[in-house]
Design a protein around this nucleic acid. Structure first.
Ligand SMILES: NC(=O)c1ccc[n+]([C@@H]2O[C@H](COP(=O)([O-])OP(=O)(O)OC[C@H]3O[C@@H](n4cnc5c(N)ncnc54)[C@H](O)[C@@H]3O)[C@@H](O)[C@H]2O)c1
Ligand SMILES: NC(=O)c1ccc[n+]([C@@H]2O[C@H](COP(=O)([O-])OP(=O)(O)OC[C@H]3O[C@@H](n4cnc5c(N)ncnc54)[C@H](O)[C@@H]3O)[C@@H](O)[C@H]2O)c1
Lengths: 197, 197
DNA sequence: TATATCTTGTGAAATCATTCACAAGCATCC
DNA sequence: GGATGCTTGTGAATGATTTCACAAGATATA
């Protein structure tokens, strides 16, 4: 679904007003029947003979994904990757607003990233209670990740995106996803060794 | 498979020598039968009544994934995310060696990241021909991504990991994967809006 | 050695996902 | 308005994956 949204935005930029399931399939590397099945799960909003209205379908998918509202995000760990994420414009463009960045390192605390001051992580629990962020990004060393996940979960955060390359266990009621870049590379190498027999 | 490897390493750190399919399943959130089917696809290396040897299974999976050799990696775009990736220790730990970083920005070229000097991207094609990197990480603005993918593919790179949030089309014979962090957040929000009816 | 207890490896069954195929709907053109 | 050309939405067929269920191998214990 998120991918379809990317394709639709791409298509809109090219000035097209409608798109057929076949076009979407070609972009996504699937079949037109697949695309239609996926979309029909949420209702039917295409026009026969014409395809889907790019604007209408985008809007509907944004609704389904919950992107019609703004989301508050905090970042834990202001190291190399945390700092990059804090300054990433792509988040705000899609409705994700970074409202806080935390670290334990005295040398980091107080520094400003894009107008956002790095806070002492001891202030985090109180801030979460007050500002009620929806999602936390965990960008700390692997050893510290599970403890922080438990801590933000307890404080009331319901979604977590983890960047530490370690298996984590999410407490009940918390949605967890992990981005593991070394793992992505491993999937690539598997494909590479596989393709040369 | 890569995930199983993570679990095994985790388990080894805890001092365990064997692990059962049930344990692996619990870690991965699947069933024991699933794990056994996955592993049996590549042969049978468990011991009945005991489980799998953590060391032997790790080794076998590393073999299957092609991690028993070293891989050469270049990074294109030395911006915020490119710089973070260039300094990331986790890659070298898993056998991925960054041998070059490229940018167009005069202000960036010549700077050193962890002992790695940022090169002018006009030198890139010659370097690829000479050093034969296996994988390129693309960390440039979305508009520039497709052109660079085509360019490194032509120069002989066979695997690409893309960080730009845009749909790319890989030329024949090139394995492409993309990491899209805003998309990861969208998947989280979908789960969040879904779970509250 | 005999017995009890685990856990793998794997056919068979059940479930889930994709593809096929086509009636029905809409737009366009004559 | 009627014929023509596209494209959707969706049952039915096919294909893939997951789960079930259990025989057979391995260890441990006495
Ligand atoms: N650098 C990358 O490109 C990259 C890529 C993929 C994954 N990662 C992972 O992301 C994590 C961070 O990587 P990095 O390169 O930014 O490391 P880093 O050392 O630059 O930054 C880690 C930061 O976390 C802070 N920290 C440690 N414990 C903390 C706590 N309890 N609360 C708050 N802050 C705490 C540290 O003070 C430090 O500033 C690691 O797990 C790493 O494996 C990094
Ligand atoms: N910053 C993040 O945390 C983050 C997160 C996810 C995705 N991304 C994506 O990663 C990409 C880079 O993001 P960033 O934040 O590092 O941006 P950035 O502006 O800091 O860095 C981009 C760099 O690419 C260089 N560049 C541009 N064209 C180039 C070319 N043809 N060849 C070589 N280098 C070129 C620029 O000079 C610049 O240094 C973007 O597509 C962004 O959407 C960034």
């Amino acid at each position: 679904m998120s991918l379809y949204l990317r394709f639709l935005e791409d298509h809109r930029r090219r000035g097209k007003e409608t798109i057929s399931s076949g076009d979407l399939a070609a972009l996504g590397g699937t079949t037109s029947a697949q695309v239609r099945k996926d979309l029909s799960f949420f209702g039917s909003f295409g026009t026969r003979g014409l395809g889907y209205s790019v604007a209408a379908l985008s809007h509907r998918i944004r609704e389904i994904l919950g992107l019609e509202r703004e989301w508050r995000v905090i970042i834990i760990g202001a190291g190399k990757i945390g700092a990059a994420l804090a300054q990433y414009r792509g988040f705000a463009e899609r409705g994700f607003h970074v409202i806080g960045v935390y670290d334990v390192d005295r040398a980091q605390i107080g520094k400003s990233l894009n107008g956002l001051v790095i806070q002492d992580e001891s202030a985090m629990d109180a801030d979460i209670a007050r500002l009620k962020p929806d999602i936390a990004l965990i960008a700390v060393p692997a050893e510290a990740a599970q403890a922080l996940l438990d801590r933000v979960a307890k404080a009331g955060v319901r979604g977590v995106l983890n960047f530490a390359p370690t298996p984590l266990h999410a407490p009940e009621g918390v949605k967890l996803r992990s981005v593991d870049m070394a793992l992505e590379l491993e999937i690539l190498t598997y494909a590479l060794v596989g393709s040369q027999h």
